Amino acid sequence: MLNNLLRFSFIAVLVSFCGLAAGQAEDVNSPDGMIRMVTQQVLTEIKSDKEIQAGNLTRITELVNQKILPYIDFNRTTRLVMGRYWASATPQQQQQITEQFKLLLIHTYSGALAQVRDQQMTYQPFRSSPTDTDVIVRSSVVNNDKTIELDYRLYKTPNGWRVYDLNILGVWLIQVYKQQFADQIAQHGVDGLLDFLTQRNQQITTGG
């Protein structure tokens, strides 16, 4: 159940990043406008790249790195997932865990891009104050006649808004991984968590 939830959440992210009409003018300085802008770029890539549609992991990783990750703060996400354990990790460990966590999400859900077809994405009216620095953009995805609520949490940086958490079916991504990370660290330490993430990525890459 958990794996299905996470897999659909990633599909939903990609649909939301791909599901709006190309050519629509957006205010890229606003949280919802930034997300809509990215959608147009990713949709063009998916429709024109047969390797992505076939699930080529190398091309998928390139697309995610080029078009999506610049708008996601994985460092902030990983820091919040690790919670109090973040401070006990060295800067090198923090960097390595962040990178391995990013790769794990890309590897685990690489097939999602190939499944993006005609799902429909709708956004709820976005309201915020000019002084807000942490906001939620609420939306929903219609997939096989099922409507799934999907929310993004973003915060304002000197370089614009960045996504750092995702809510699918009432479960936030950070919540999903927080306990898993805590269990690994409690049993094996920070290095144990890094080894676990690295091994999982290696297993996925080799088809394990």
Rank of each mutant, 00 (worst) to 15 (best):
I52R: 04
I106G: 01
G83C: 04
Q96I: 07
F8P: 00
G192M: 05
G19N: 09
Q120V: 15
S48Y: 06
S30I: 10
L173H: 04
N75C: 03
V42S: 02
P130S: 14
I97L: 07
G83A: 03
F74S: 15
L63K: 15
Q119E: 12
V81G: 00
T77L: 15
Q124P: 01
I136W: 09
P158S: 10
L5A: 11
A25D: 10
I52H: 06
L166C: 09
Y123E: 02
M34Q: 06
V135D: 02
P31R: 07
D132L: 11
T147A: 14
L193W: 00
G33S: 08
T131N: 12
K178I: 00
I185R: 06
H188L: 06
R200F: 01
Q92Y: 04
G208H: 13
K47Y: 10
T44D: 10
S16H: 03
N201A: 03
T133H: 12
V190Q: 03
T157K: 14
N159R: 10
V13G: 10
Y123I: 09
L2G: 06
D165M: 02
S140M: 14
Y155W: 13
G207F: 00
T198W: 03
A12D: 01
L6V: 12
R162K: 15
R162V: 08
K156S: 13
T122Q: 07
M82C: 09
A112Y: 10
G83I: 00
V142R: 09
R84W: 03
